[in-house]
């Protein structure tokens, strides 16, 4: 489910990057057809991306339903049952948001919410997958060192999540090319935000026959860049600080920092290629991967793990004891 969700995020990225969000004007039907009966031969151009996205989303939806039913009957751990239900609610809401974006011509707020909720759902699938892993089932307590690293990884996770929110706002406000150079703009890391700076930015865009941008778009783009570099520096700092940690966790941190580095390069290539759809979508995919890895590392370094194993029975017993 984690992998299919990741693929779904990539497919969603392709929909936005190719500007195909409204290639199918109706919802939940596709050009009047029931979703699964739409002819494959008609899946051309933007329909391929938009209808393909809907089909993958339907698969994820079905997998979620099957998973939740299975959890409900087979799993005793209370938090997993609750999280599974929340995951199901999220996927239903996500489907409805997708419909609203189509029927109301991609309203920015809803489109951003749709993008962010996709990442949230992905986090849920990772947490659930972890719960069923050997590590997630092992009733061990973490060492002090793990506890310290948790604080840092959770801050990094929040920062990455915030970055994805900004990224979603950037994509849906068409701010991705507000600055046309990378990593510098006209020789400086950050452009100014004065009236003169905007004129300069827009004349640079005009050189490339691109429409002018507003101060808001430049700000969103700049914030995304700043946070991107901040995440890179913070990731390296964590790895440096905890270089003596357990090898498996250190390896994960290495992968994380490498992914952040690749992500920064992908962001740059997205700008330099004037948002080539495949590059931009891989950038979205890698962003999701980084968030997922942050969540995974945070789970591995959770300081308090007792609640992970709390079942319905044990919670009732605990409540009964407290009453007595």
């Amino acid at each position: 489910m984690v992998l299919v969700t990741l693929f779904l995020i990539f497919a969603g990225g392709m929909v936005t990057s190719t500007g195909s969000g409204l290639a199918v004007p109706d919802w939940p039907t596709t050009y009047g057809y029931q979703m699964f009966s739409f002819p494959i031969s008609e899946m051309v151009g933007g329909i391929f991306y938009e209808h393909g996205h809907r089909l993958i989303a339907a698969i994820v939806g079905c997998l979620t339903v099957v998973f939740v039913v299975w959890v409900w009957f087979k799993e005793n751990r209370l938090w997993i049952r609750r999280l599974a239900c929340l995951t199901l609610l999220t996927v239903v809401l996500q489907g409805l948001l997708g419909g609203i974006t189509v029927l109301f011509f991609l309203p920015t707020g809803i489109s951003v919410f749709h993008a962010v909720l996709a990442q949230t759902f992905f986090c849920f699938t990772i947490i659930l997958a972890y719960a069923f892993s050997d590590d997630g089932r092992a009733q061990k307590q973490n060492t002090e060192k793990y506890k310290r690293i948790f604080t840092y990884t959770i801050i990094l996770t929040i920062l990455v999540y915030f970055q994805l929110v900004i990224g979603a706002i950037m994509r849906h406000t068409h701010s991705g090319l507000a600055l046309l150079d990378f990593p510098f703009f006209e020789g400086v890391i950050l452009s100014g935000f004065s009236g003169d700076a905007i004129v300069e930015i827009n004349s640079s865009r005009m050189e490339n026959w691109l429409d002018p941008v507003s101060l808001g778009q430049i700000l969103i783009h700049s914030i995304h860049r700043i946070i991107g570099f901040a995440i890179g520096i913070f990731g390296i700092a964590i790895m440096w600080k905890f270089k003596g940690i357990h090898k498996k966790t250190l390896r994960l941190l290495w992968v994380l920092v490498s992914l952040i580095g690749i992500q920064i390069v992908l962001g740059g290539i997205s700008v330099l290629t004037l948002k080539a759809p495949i590059i931009t979508s891989i950038h979205v995919l890698t962003g999701a991967g980084i968030l997922g890895l942050c969540v995974f590392i945070s789970l591995r370094t959770l300081p308090v793990r007792d609640w992970l194993f709390m079942t319905k029975k044990s919670s009732l017993e605990k409540a009964g004891l407290e009453k007595a």
Binding site: L22, A23, V24, P25, D26, Y31, G32, E42, V44, I47, F105
Partner: peptide
């Protein structure tokens, strides 16, 4: 072939219609 007509006005009413 299948087209969709998507008008993106600022003042008038936006529409996006299928033209099979």
């Amino acid at each position: 072939i299948l087209h969709n007509i998507h008008a993106k006005p600022a003042v008038n009413k936006e529409f996006n219609r299928a033209q099979p």
